[in-house]
Amino acid sequence: MIRRELGLVLVLVAAACAPLYLPAYELSLLGRFLALAVLAMGISLIWGTGGILSLGQGVFFGLGGYAVAMHLKLASADPGAVPDFMQWSGLNTLPWWWTPFGNPAFAIAAAVIIPGTAAAALAYLVFRRRVTGSYFAIITQALALAATTFIISQQQYTGGFNGLTGFTSAFGFALGDQRTQFGLYWVTVGIVAVTFVAVRALQGSLFGKVLLAVRDGENRVRFLGYDPLPFKVIAFAIAGVLAGVAGALVTLDLGVISPAMFGVVPSIEMVIWVAVGGRNSLLGAIVGTLIVNFGKDWISSVFPDLWLHVVGAVFVLVVTVAPRGIVGLMQSVRTRSLRLRPVTPPALVE
């Protein structure tokens, strides 16, 4: 156990020192993918522990991203003027709900609170009537579709299809500056570490145990006197918050947030990161996110047409061949190497 903790600390130190040995492009990729790993840990919590498959995590990612982007947009506009895309749409006064985002503290708080509240509200409304499983997955996918078409249509308020971009500075730091990039990278590594520790503690707590029990037998949990609803709502809200944080970090890193980053297709890809790493493992969520995203970056630059075939095949293979993901595969390799003969399962009564 201590060896494992030591390993994690070593990985953390290696990640924190990455600016010293990684080229700038790879470092910016690593930073962005680590930010996505925060979202992936949320999926691991609701799907791996809670058995809730969401195909709409992108929506909460987007809410977090827009909250920060709205602040950056206001900070980049001339004093007293509305952001450029509003002028292009003929809008000359700032909508009232944009105004508070001028305050950086409000924007950061909103990037956490809005996705969390939205996720909690959705989960409450759907789970209240014991709608679960595939039904919930479809509802969340419809949410991703509705949210993106809505944002695209409200161009004068949201920047439409192009989203929000063209920021000059972020919270007083120049965005192009290398020091700002390093700072953002370290903030990301710190958030990943804190999230990992916090979610793992949550999974080990009574809350996590009940959530796991809800996954395996919701009605049995009811018979034991627990109401599954608050457990599912809280878990889903936490995943929403983590998605929002990831969205905020990625927006800062890329300097853009647009509907193409969080629609139906990106949302379901987020699930596959976790599936590849291992849905039951928090570490697997991080590993899977990094592998799939670096793989995507590499394949789509070398063989642009191949990426969809590869990701399609990954969806099929990970589900049929390795449902427990990379972490599961490694575990079975390890148990096999420790015990020379494979464990024979007890004979089934035919």
Partner: peptide, 18 residues
């Protein structure tokens, strides 16, 4: 495993589209 069929068939749909 209904949720897994959902993911696997999504993969099939990506391959067919491409």
């Amino acid at each position: 495993r209904p949720l897994d069929t959902l993911l696997a068939t999504w993969g099939v749909s990506l391959i067919l589209q491409q």
